[in-house]
Computed example of a mutant assay.
Amino acid sequence: MLSPQSTETVRATLPAVGGAIGEITPLFYDKLFAEHPELLRDLFNRGNQANGSQQQALAGSIAAFATALIEHPDVRPDAMLARIAHKHASLGIAPELYPIVQRHLFAAIAEVLGDAVTAEVAAAWDEVYWLMANALIALEARLYERAGTAPGDTLRPCRVVGRLRETADVATFLVQPLDGRPLPAARPGQYVSVQVELPDGARQIRQYSLSGRPDDALQFSVKRQAGDPAGEVSHHLHDHVGIGDTLLVGAPFGDVTLEDGDSPVLLASAGIGCTPMIGMLSHLAATGARRRVIAVHADRDESAHAFRTDLAQLVAKLPDATSHVWYEHPEPGHPADRTGHADLTGIEIPAGTTAYLCGPLPFMRAVRAQLLAAGVAPADIHYEVFGPDLWLGAGS
């Protein structure tokens, strides 16, 4: 809980800090990486730094946390904190990093806002920072304990024992730990971190959703990321990693997981967002679930739809499941009412449905709006974002 004095100071200065956060966060990262270049080389996603998405996510989380402290002083924003904590744990973030971040972040704030950062203002925002940081440190400690790992030691050498071609730009990898220890426990919907050494010596880490759970391996799927900059890790995995090679793979983490029970469930995905949903469907089929299941997917066309056959097969195994697939450019014979963008308005959604969404932000925003209009409670709509979460504060 934020102290009364700091609450008023933060309330008064939030517009100024929030308005300048777009200048503060790039300067913060410049300062951080100048002193600790190893963090950019081996920890932070260089692609997200280059396109600015990491800066946007940091700005959004700080503003959202400060706003929550002011508007709801007796309620900690646990949903936001849990998402960040899971991502931090997947990277092996240690408590020792938080003072380093604080020092460079506050140096950036002081440089951008100048004389407006009085001792009182600095103390109030320092209180905000450490309320957030200490909450994350505690959450991450519990996650490490549950996973049987320690900060900075979450990656295990694994051998690639299988590689499958899903589409022209999606590959599935199956890996087994080299140390012979049992596979780590995983919940449907979670992801693993994968670290590779790139040609320049950088050891970059990315997270990939578990797209199924074979009995004797971890299975994750990777889309070759285009764009500017292109996905350097996804390209490396596609071009240089095959059966018999070794990867460093982390324990499964992620806060968007399929809850057990008998209530109806809706799984909505677009593009490569199908990977956690296929993982959830695989779990439902393997456990003989009899609950109502509605699977929704949208894609460019049939050839781009990863796990298209798996989707049909898994839905067929479930006694009360249906699938609804939209393609923007379908092959001849595809239903006309399933052409274009996904539209859930014609689907009967039972009362008490819990929904899980994964895909591009415009897709998830549109689907969420349709689910709310259909009577699904906001608390029952959960979403997974690949990359920095730029949807913080929009509801989960």
Rank of each mutant, 00 (worst) to 15 (best):
A289Y: 11
G340S: 13
S193W: 01
D255N: 14
G162W: 11
G395L: 09
D245S: 14
A147Y: 00
F253I: 01
T246Q: 09
A82H: 07
A63C: 04
H238E: 08
Y191P: 04
S234G: 10
N45A: 08
A124W: 02
R146C: 00
R163S: 07
A85T: 09
V296T: 03
L131H: 13
L39F: 13
A230N: 06
Y144C: 00
G288A: 11
I21W: 05
R203V: 02
L139D: 09
G18W: 10
P229K: 08
V101L: 13
G19F: 11
A168P: 00
A251D: 04
Q195N: 04
L392Q: 14
G92Q: 00
L27P: 06
G212N: 02
D245E: 13
A108R: 01
C274T: 12
V160E: 04
A124N: 05
H72Y: 05
G162E: 11
L40V: 08
A147E: 04
I278W: 03
G279C: 12
F253E: 00
F28K: 04
A351W: 02
E197P: 06
E348T: 15
L266A: 07
A355C: 12
L97Y: 15
S263A: 14
V385P: 05
L344R: 05
A270R: 06
A286S: 15
P184R: 11
D245Q: 08
V161N: 12
A168H: 15
H72A: 15
F253Q: 01
G201E: 09
E23T: 09
S263G: 13
G352E: 09
A79C: 02
G212V: 07
V128R: 01
P360H: 14
F106H: 09
A355Q: 06
V160P: 06
R187W: 14
L314G: 07
Y327H: 13
A304S: 15
E348W: 08
V75Q: 15
D299H: 08
M280A: 12
A286G: 14
R368W: 10
I70Y: 03
T167H: 05
V161A: 04
L237F: 11
T9H: 10
S269P: 00
K31W: 02
E111L: 04
A59Y: 01
A268L: 10
A107Y: 06
E384C: 09
R156P: 02
G288S: 12
Y191N: 03
S323N: 12
G271H: 09
H72F: 04
G189H: 05
R142W: 02
A202D: 15
A366M: 10
C358N: 11
Q176R: 15
L27H: 05
D245Y: 08
L40R: 15
F65M: 00
G244S: 06
P99C: 12
S6H: 04
V249L: 04
R41I: 05
A379V: 13
E127L: 08
A342G: 02
P99N: 10
A377R: 14
A351S: 14
L311R: 03
P350E: 06
K31V: 02
V315G: 08
E166G: 09
V376F: 05
T25H: 03
T246S: 09
D78P: 00
L372D: 14
P73S: 07
